[in-house]
Design a protein around this nucleic acid. Sequence first.
DNA 1: GCCAACGTTGGC
DNA 2: GCCAACGTTGGC
Length: 156
Amino acid sequence: MPAPEFWLFKTEPSVFSIEDLEKSPGKTAPWEGVRNYQARNFMRDQMKKKDLGFLYHSNTKETGIYGIVEITKEGYPDAFAFDTNSNYFDPKSKKENPTWYMVDVKLVRKFKKPVLLKDMKEFPQLREMKLLQKGNRLSVMPVSKIEFDFIKSLSQ
DNA sequence: GCCAACGTTGGC
DNA sequence: GCCAACGTTGGC
């Protein structure tokens, strides 16, 4: 069995927050609406059941990591892309050949206090982290095991 | 609300 | 295939 990999999921809390995930049935929800090819490839091709990820709040007052999620369902077509009533509708995605994929994530732990972006920037151990690279806009990205463990150790 | 950085689109 | 124009992301 391959070693688990680690991920980071960005979300705007005004759209979908960690509290929303906590309130979802089984604390589990599909990670729909990703419309970027690189991020899609991670979800479609690389994420495995039991992989862990951070849940990150962007575009908010306190940007940072708010908790840990687990992949409970591997990549499958994002049906919201087929729904003309959805904000995530995309006419180029066809049911017989879907463009967009999603995974299901389950909340494992909500931190008592978030690990804030501004604090992460201070640690030399995290200097290489993808999230912190200038201009990075990926909404789903890999995190190294070392970074994952380090940030976990900072959390409460 | 501003704006830099980036991804996508579409004319040619 | 190039690249300008446009739209979006996301920190501040």
